[in-house]
Structures are given as C-alpha cells and as structure tokens.
Design a protein around this nucleic acid. Structure first.
Length: 336
DNA sequence: AACAGGAGCAACCGCACCACA
DNA sequence: ATGTGGTGCGGTTGCTCCTGT
C-alpha cells in the first residue's frame, strides 16, 4: 500500500511542546473535541501533525491523567498484568486509571525490569533465571541468613524451626521449577511464590525479633534490592514478584564440584556449602546449610546431578567460587 | 566548580489493524 | 476484493536533570 507517514510533511514542528501549543490544543479539544486527529492541527492553529497532537493529548494533557510516582499497589498490578499480558501496555493501562500506556512502559523499562533482573527473574517470562550471576546474590543471602542464626545463639528448637522453614522453602522453590509441577498459569506460580515469600518473611521477622540488622544483610548481598524510595525498600517482601527467586535451584546452587570439594567444614556431610566473605572483610569462610540439599544433588562429589546443570556435573566447576564470592554478583564489583 | 555518566521521561517512528468507499 | 485514511500500539530516541567524581 505504501502509505506515507502522517508527519513527513515539510514545515511541521517536531520536538517538545511549548506551553502555548499545549494551551491551543487543550482549548480546541475542550471546545470541539478532538474529532479527526489529522484535521485537528489546522483547526486548532497548530503547526503539528495530528499524530503528535494525539500523543500529546493522550499522554500528557488529558485532564484525567494521574501524575506522580506509582504506588506499590500500582506497581504490583503492573507486575501481575505484565506476567499475563506481556508488553501490552495499553491493555495494562486500562487497569490503571489515570495512567497512560507510555508512562507504564517507561516505568517498566526504567524501574520494574531492572528490579526483576536484580532479583533474579527474567523480566519477560517472570520466571526465575538460571544463570549463575543472577543466582549468586541469593546464595549469599542464604548464607548470611544461616550465619546470623548461628551468631544469635538460638535455641535448638528455634534453629530447628528456621531450618525446617528453609527446607520447606527449598521444597517450594524446587517445585516451582520442576517441569512436572509447573503450569502455564500465572496464579499457580504466584501462589507458590507467595507461599515461599511469606515463609521468608516469617524468617525475616524472627531475625528482627532477635535484633538482627537486616539492612546490613541487604547491603551485603542485594537480597532485598534497595533502590531508594520504591517498594523494595519500604515493603521488601510483600509481593510474589519480589520474591526471592530459586536461590536453591538445584541446577545452580548445589552442583558445583569445586564448591563441595573445597568444603572444609562440611567434609563427609551432605551439607550445602558456599563461600563468602564476612562483614569485616576477612577472608572467605565456608558456611554449611544442613539438610536443604535437593536430593539429587546431595553430597559427595560423585553424585551431583550433571545432566541439566550448566555449572556442576562431573569435573571441576568452570568457576572459581571462592574468588567469585569476593564480588557482588549483581555488579561484579568487590564487596565493600 | 566543572565534567561525565546514568536515569528518567516525553516524544517520535514505523507498523498493524480496522472501517469504509 | 482492494485501496485508503484514521487510529492505536510498541519500540526507540534524544533531551534534561541528577548524581558522583
């Protein structure tokens, strides 16, 4: 058909709108409605193409537009709808009164996408990522969590409860990644994620009751992303899409031969062990997290699952774990 | 104080869809 | 059945402001 774009006429202004142009457009639409957008610029006395006028009106000048920061509820709605609809911004916008598709799209690209990536989720599929870099922060976080337990002299019962929760969390997360358990339903995953999420939250609450400074943990591990005044900082654990991803993913977390082989404290046990540097900056140490190994990856260096793992299996790990853990995996900068 | 780099956002561009002649 | 106009949508660009050095 080869139709020409509407804006290629010579002499039509492009770029930012002036207050005078805005006023002309608003006054015209308030008096006459927009009618045909193509005809509108001439009728309104604007040296713009109709498309530019429509965009300016719908994205900026419309009186019912809600401006300002997105609320946590709006953020959750966007995350939820995006997981269902994908990049159907206009469809998403219909569920957020006063918000434009353009605004939502920008908010997604500048905030939510990064947040999901930082938390180990694929922003397109909303499924946990399985690459190493995205998973390391959560391994570190888990290590910290366990270390904190030890350092706070919990009773045996308290520790048992916490470990049981961790174990159950591991089970949930494994289930959510298990093809046999997964469905295409967002809600199915959301339920699982939410369950795991509230579980983590309860663990966090226990920590806080014991006087543990979780913010310290956050900055060390990026477990809960802190990026200013958004939901992540004010409500770190309230939405399934903010949930920690599968930091216990058997394909990633438990299959490193070198990890297990270097485990000095865990020799002869089936404990999962990872390396980290403590808050004082002293050399890395091994931390054992008993009993949360996925069965198919437990234990001795010979039986780690190798069929699906990118990082494990027979032979040495392609990564030098003890070196890797001296860096913040999200930024690959040295931990401060 | 000056500069560089990054973040945020408004606006543009090209394509697709639909209605209508 | 086909061509055209109108509109909407999603991706991308580029400008402005902010922050860190």
């Amino acid at each position: 058909m080869g139709r020409s774009p509407c804006c290629d006429e010579n002499g039509l202004k492009k770029g930012p709108w002036t207050p005078e142009e805005d006023q002309k457009l608003v006054e015209h639409i308030q008096k006459h409605g927009h009618g045909s957008w193509r005809a509108l610029p001439k009728l309104a006395g604007l040296n713009r193409c109709g498309k530019s006028c429509r965009l300016r009106w719908t994205n900026y000048l419309r009186p019912d537009i809600k401006r300002g920061k997105f609320s946590p509820e709006e953020e959750q709605t966007i995350l939820h709808l995006h997981s269902i609809l994908g990049n159907k911004w206009s469809a998403i916008a219909t569920h957020l009164p006063g918000r434009t598709d353009n605004e939502i799209k920008n908010f997604w690209n500048t905030h939510l996408k990064k947040k999901l990536i930082q938390m180990g989720f694929d922003p397109m599929t909303h499924q946990p990522r399985t690459d190493l870099v995205s998973t390391l922060p959560y391994l570190l976080a888990l290590a910290n969590m366990t270390q904190l337990m030890d350092h706070n002299h919990q009773s045996f019962d308290e520790q048992a409860v916490q470990l049981a929760k961790l174990q159950y969390l591991n089970y949930l997360l494994q289930s959510s990644n298990n093809p046999l358990c997964m469905t295409n339903s967002y809600d199915q995953n959301a339920l699982t994620n939410m369950e795991a999420f509230s579980l983590l939250n309860s663990i966090s609450n226990v920590k806080e009751n014991l006087g543990v400074d979780f913010s310290q943990m956050d900055t060390q591990t990026s477990l809960f992303s802190h990026d200013g005044n958004n939901m992540a900082s004010s409500q770190p654990l309230h939405h399934p899409s903010n949930m920690l991803p599968h930091f216990l993913d058997p394909q990633v977390s438990f299959s490193s031969q070198s990890c297990l082989n270097n485990n000095e404290q865990g020799q002869g046990t089936n404990n999962f062990a990872i390396s980290q540097r403590d808050h004082t900056g002293d050399e890395s140490s091994w931390i054992n997290i008993p009993s949360i190994n996925p069965p198919n990856a437990i234990g001795t260096s010979g039986d780690a699952s190798s069929s699906t793992s990118s990082y494990g299996g027979a032979g040495p790990s392609p990564y030098n774990w003890s070196e890797l853990f001296f860096e913040d995996p999200t930024t690959m900068h040295e931990l401060s």
